[in-house]
Design a protein around this nucleic acid. Sequence first.
DNA 1: TCGGTGCGCGAAAGGGCTTTCAAACCGGTT
DNA 2: AACCGGTTTGAAAGCCCTTTCGCGCACCGA
Lengths: 347, 347
Amino acid sequence: MPQLPSGRPTISDVAARAGISKGMVSLALRGAPGPSAETTARVLRAAEELGYRPDRAASSLALRRTRLLGVTMTVRNAFHAELVEELQSAAEDAGYDLVLAPVTRTRGERAAVETLLDSRCEALLLLGPEAATEELRGWDARTPTVVFGCRPRTGPDGGAGGGPDVVRASEAVGLRLVVEHLAALGHRELVHVSGGSGDIAADRRAAFEAAAAERGVGARTVEAGFDEEAGVLATQRLLTAQGPPTAVVAANDRVALGVLDTLLRAGVQVPQQVSVTGYDDSQLARLGHVRLTSVGQDPAGQARAAVRLALERLEDVEHAGGRDVLVEPHLVVRDTTAPPRGEFMSQ
Amino acid sequence: MPQLPSGRPTISDVAARAGISKGMVSLALRGAPGPSAETTARVLRAAEELGYRPDRAASSLALRRTRLLGVTMTVRNAFHAELVEELQSAAEDAGYDLVLAPVTRTRGERAAVETLLDSRCEALLLLGPEAATEELRGWDARTPTVVFGCRPRTGPDGGAGGGPDVVRASEAVGLRLVVEHLAALGHRELVHVSGGSGDIAADRRAAFEAAAAERGVGARTVEAGFDEEAGVLATQRLLTAQGPPTAVVAANDRVALGVLDTLLRAGVQVPQQVSVTGYDDSQLARLGHVRLTSVGQDPAGQARAAVRLALERLEDVEHAGGRDVLVEPHLVVRDTTAPPRGEFMSQ
DNA sequence: TCGGTGCGCGAAAGGGCTTTCAAACCGGTT
DNA sequence: AACCGGTTTGAAAGCCCTTTCGCGCACCGA
């Protein structure tokens, strides 16, 4: 048998060394019934001695499946990074592996999905996809698809059935938690610094206003954007226009950081004079010198849910998809919220 | 011919539709010499109509090569993210594809490398590896390996030959740029907030001290750590111990942010009273409300260099490895550096 | 001693793709 | 009809692994 160019041992090498046939080796290595205990031991030892590791390509060709879950992500996005970590564990627990396809400036989402399909991933997990509903449904038709952090995509006919599954955190619950917390501290007038024009920002804004109305506290919204810069500008406007409010509800942690920084530079004390909340419970919020009160979106829970949805559709081929899983967010109270100036807690 | 469970069209389907044999289809699709122009056109059309995409596993099995470059990274690390983006383009230009293996809490570097080897990657690119020299050399012996951002790893015998290639930015140049800049502004006494115990931190510290000595300005180093928290603590000590210095050289941008924030909270104006520099030119440094003077490490250049090194070793099997490529960093002057209090520029 | 009963094993097919190789074909000349 | 040199073609082998099928063997009870 001619030596391969790569020089890596194959199953035949193991078989030869163990004095046994290839087939037996394959069974023995995977603990399948068939080979005797003694044969299995010999095979394992031979494999160990040779440093044999099965070739994924050959294996998936023979198995006619890859046990691969394809993930598209924006590599610079910290929340995506966190999700990937959790997806990794969740997939591993289920005996699957992840293939990561980063979406970059030079490589769009479509190209990323294409490579995933070329690797014959069994399901697609798209983090914050930008594709149109049409395209998402197209991908879903080829391969079960789960989408993170965007609204459910019903078809152009508005029909709810089919299409990708959606996993997201409930904005309604998250903002209710924030509003309740601030109201309980005694704040009567909340200002929301909104995250711009995206779906999620709009949902958060609506959820904020609903929660404030429900709780009976005053609510005002300032349009901003999704990053620190936006928080800075919004806060500058707030400070000059009519003096600072007692509490600011930022659309996310990055915006909150801009808010905090601007207040600090203006000599406004947080939380003594103004309370600030973020959203996402990102690394930023946890930093020792920031300690931002924020809303955690349970990335681990979202990851597990997504993997579960994907696997359910893999196992049950007739499964329709089109589900919408809402994960329960939770409030993380840190050092940027307190009762309003001079007041005591109201409960 | 039985339909596959996956339902995806194979090369046989294309062949049947084009009324031609599988072999011809393979040649035609890849533009290899053989099939006539007319045949090629027919094949391309059939493939298009069926939505055919070749199966990577089958293809790499037959080719006996994968054209895959394996990358390990810490998914939360922003600089790694930037490198991955650049690696992606560099690899694509060379006709290769990337396989990303994230190193997480639950999955160590060794496991990540293992999966890369199982996918039969042709080379390994390790971002900020933590493995011991021994282990790195072991991997390199199996597959050409390029290592980012750590010192060259000579063998236990101290011999320079062989072992992984190394790509890194020159700390000596980077810190000389910083020191020159501050000295030119008129600062006479610089304080370095050091990044802890890692290789890179040690190199930066040494480079800082060498550059200051060379330029003839005073230099003091405070041991800290690699994150914002470390910057905060170090700055608090600086402030209480003997009053703030006129310029702080932080080991990286995250530390610099902690420094900035602490100064701000203490009412110290930046850059009027104290100048601060970072290192990495990360997203953080570029933020509109931070605008930190920092050192860029040319991630694009590093990525291209790494891919080049890897490909050279793939093409020339006898290549020894063990090279050390230093990329030239550059200074990005923003708003956190200025002449010291009350002084004018000295040149 | 013999026919049955399992168990452990080897042989071989098959998965999708690439590549090789011998055969077919071209139109014109001997 | 055999042959020319060059271009196309189809069949088949091989890449590494998994899984099925049936055989041979040892052992059992009769």
